[in-house]
């Protein structure tokens, strides 16, 4: 097949760094959803204001796994403030670029890291977060989910002017 991914992406995909969980993590981040094809968990260990360990678990395509591996490498040893400044774009650049559709759907590493750091602050403030929440928001905002007919709820083409299954006209004024 044509080479879709850069050599850096392939290296991180085939030899991912920092796979696993941290049993006594100080913060856990979770973004994505298996329905969309990608789901990432990031676990962090914090000493002072510094990230001393970062690990990940990811369900997803080659890009999602490489992004997860890269963000753990980039974040390790950084202060929390520095880590909060790492963007999804920075991760893509460090990987030597990602295919356009993967930039949209799989480049969630920084989001997952930031989610873990937020969890750390929340825990410090005494808030307990239940994972798996915020999915609805994610689905609506990321636009990676399929388009469904509002009448018969079957999956349809994104640009389809009508539902192929029930024949009803459809408007596509939602955000994807």
């Amino acid at each position: 097949m044509a080479q879709v991914y850069s050599n850096i992406v392939l290296d991180h995909f085939k030899n991912p760094r920092n796979v696993g969980e941290i049993a006594d993590a100080d913060g856990i981040g979770e973004v994505g959803n298996p329905v969309c094809g990608d789901m990432m968990n990031v676990f962090i260990k914090v000493e002072g204001d510094r990230l001393t360990d970062v690990k990940f678990k990811t369900f997803g395509c080659g890009a999602a796994i490489a992004v997860s591996s890269m963000i753990t490498e980039m974040a390790k040893g950084k202060t929390l403030d520095e880590a909060m400044k790492i963007s999804n774009k920075d991760v893509a650049v460090a990987l030597g670029g990602l295919p356009p559709n993967k930039l949209h759907c799989s480049n969630l590493g920084a989001d997952a890291l930031h989610s873990a750091i937020k969890d750390y602050y929340d825990r410090k403030a005494g808030k307990v977060r239940i994972l798996d929440t915020g999915k609805e928001e994610h689905i609506a905002s990321r636009g990676a989910l399929a388009c469904y007919c509002p009448y018969c709820e079957k999956q349809v083409e994104e640009e389809s002017p009508f539902c192929i299954f029930c024949g009803k006209e459809m408007s596509h004024d939602h955000d994807h």
């Binding site: 097949m1 995909f13 094809g37 990608d38 759907c105 399929a146 994104e158």
Partner: peptide
Amino acid sequence: EGESLMLMLDDEGIVVATRSACASGSL
């Protein structure tokens, strides 16, 4: 996820197709 399976097998010299959303380009 299917694309990562497909890529891992591709690396081992086994060429298969996947029907995962990620690889289809349509998400």
